[in-house]
Nucleic acid binder design. Structure first.
Lengths: 157, 157
DNA sequence: GACTTTTTGTAGCCTAGGCTACATTTTAAG
DNA sequence: CTTAAAATGTAGCCTAGGCTACAAAAAGTC
């Protein structure tokens, strides 16, 4: 697919089609690398906001993994400066972690709302959004927001 | 997991919120596990359709990985019954692999079209779709198709 | 035909994110 | 206070998917 640029007229751009495609995949891969971290900070933030405590066991249960896995990832969160934790005390977020959680949550909501707006059943929208959200760029998010606003304006008044 | 059926229907619902949430994440994880395979079969199918050959080096260049990585993944494709290859001859798809490629391609197009339809710029849509497509369920895809059809009908005649 | 370059394949290493099994510490019950 | 249960942490293993470095085969060049 993506018919090659067919000898661009002007400069000898030498825009290698392969490189363009490769960049797409590279971006998707890097998004995937941060997906787990994003899920963790959002969940931790939720737990802290509601119950007041984010314990490794709870986190593990919510994510559907063993506590050992959760603890290892929490270690990574700490290494990346997103969270802190003291022995046998719960997990907390750094300002950076908290900021990330806020952005992730907003993005999640927007994705779910968009899916709903184009006719995806609610339960399915929630389910699919979990995987989709990590790959939606800021530009796309802006477009989503605009679309939702216009749709509201069209049907509300 | 095996969410217990919850003794009481309405009052103390006992619907384990954690289990529901956990299932979401598990689904996203399993989708991710097949994402790479999907990318490979689609690309191989493209190469076979256009140039007639799918060589490991080309595949690697398009995906933005080293040939060693590509070869290792091709080995996995063969193990999973999606592709075949002979020494120093190119890679080919099994009927299963071809079928998967078709489904993946159709899904990719639908996702790009939907993103475009809600106002995402073309280039951004192509870029984001690469990561998003692997997480869009069949139910959501149906909704996308319906939405696009209705949108066409509204602005065309 | 000999030589160089490209392609292909193999080996070994790394990180991430799963897991189980075991050890330790806290918390709860008695 | 003692003891049982739960939570937490550690160690070690596995797979996937990256990588570099080296070896061998195929394809071009002269």
């Amino acid at each position: 697919m993506t018919a090659k640029p067919a000898a661009t007229p002007q400069s000898s751009v030498e825009l290698p089609v392969e490189a363009v495609q490769a960049r797409r995949f590279e971006k998707a891969r890097s998004a995937q690398a941060t997906a787990v971290l994003e899920d963790y900070v959002e969940l931790i933030d939720d737990l802290l906001a509601s119950g007041g405590e984010a314990r490794p066991t709870d986190i593990a249960r919510r994510l559907g993994v063993t506590h050992a896995t959760a603890i290892k990832t929490i270690t990574r969160l700490k290494r990346e400066g997103l969270a802190t934790s003291k022995l046998y005390r719960g997990v907390f977020l750094t300002p950076e972690g908290h900021g990330l959680a806020d952005r992730v949550r907003a993005r999640h909501r927007l994705v779910v709302d968009l899916l709903r707006a184009v006719g995806v059943p609610e339960q399915c929208a929630e389910l699919d959004a979990e995987g989709i959200e990590h790959h939606v760029s800021d530009v796309a998010l802006d477009a989503f927001a605009l679309f939702l606003k216009r749709q509201l304006k069209r049907q509300d008044p």
